[in-house]
């Protein structure tokens, strides 16, 4: 085991490993781009749908069922199935990760809008707001904290899922892991795992700051 840790440190300590073309810096960039693409795609569909369902007060049961089932849908299976359709590597992984992220975002948007104070909703209606204005100017701002929390969870989970791309010939930091596994360099495997975990924590920290900034001042706790 000491060997493995030593190998991992030696691997991470080699500047060339980081800076060469296709090195760790390139792979990290790819990793983040794939994450961004997956979450943005999922958000474009899931956030409006979730907000609308929450506004209409419909589909809660359906949402729970979808988000529970989607957890059982192995991301690996989606990636492999897409690969058989000729979509290899990165594209397949982005789609699969998007499918994986969408329920989280959907639930965040739905719960956020749903949990808006009914009194605030009533007051807005009493002031003569149209239903669209109620949704847009009252419910959506009130939903921001829960939506932001959903986005944060989704992004972190996607960063941790993207490594599966390597099993279908994709890029990102998963390559380090799967290459290390294939060549029995377990130090490299450990290094790859540590890098992905570190990236997750970093992204989570940045998003925590973003989450705070996005929350309307009046809703901030502490």
């Amino acid at each position: 085991m000491n060997d493995v840790v030593g190998d991992a440190l030696r691997y991470l300590n080699d500047p060339l490993v980081w800076t060469r073309p296709g090195g760790l810096l390139d792979l990290t960039g790819q990793h983040l781009l794939m994450t961004l693409a997956a979450v943005a795609g999922a958000a474009a569909v899931a956030l409006p749908l979730g907000a609308w369902l929450g506004h209409a007060g419909r589909g809660s049961g359906l949402l729970v069922a979808i988000s529970n089932t989607s957890r059982a849908l192995p991301t690996l299976a989606i990636i492999l199935l897409l690969a058989t359709a000729g979509l290899f590597g990165n594209t397949a992984t982005v789609i699969a990760a998007g499918v994986f992220a969408a329920p989280l975002l959907l639930a965040g948007a739905h719960d956020g809008v749903r949990s808006a104070d009914p009194a605030a909703r009533d007051a807005a209606r009493g002031l003569g707001f149209t239903p669209a204005a109620v949704l847009w100017r009252v419910e959506v701002p009130l939903a921001v904290p829960l939506v932001a929390a959903g986005v944060r969870t989704a992004v972190v989970q996607v960063v941790a899922t993207i490594p599966l791309a390597a099993l279908a010939g994709g890029g990102g930091l998963g390559q380090v892991i799967s290459l290390g596994m294939g060549t029995q360099r377990y130090g490299q495997v450990l290094a790859g795992g540590l890098l992905v975990a570190a990236l997750c924590l970093l992204v989570d920290g940045v998003l925590a700051i973003g989450q705070r900034a996005a929350t309307p001042r009046a809703l901030r706790a502490g």
């Binding site: 085991m1 493995v4 972190v156 960063v159 941790a160 899922t161 490594p163 599966l164 390597a166 099993l167 998963g174 892991i177 799967s178 290390g180 596994m181 377990y186 495997v189 450990l190 790859g192 795992g193 540590l194 992905v196 975990a197 997750c200 924590l201 989570d204």
Partner: peptide, 18 residues
């Protein structure tokens, strides 16, 4: 929460040699 961010692929791969 920190441990949960370790990718499954890496965790299995790290545990295998041990």
């Amino acid at each position: 929460a920190v441990a949960y961010t370790v990718p499954s692929l890496a965790l299995f791969a790290i545990l295998a040699p041990v």
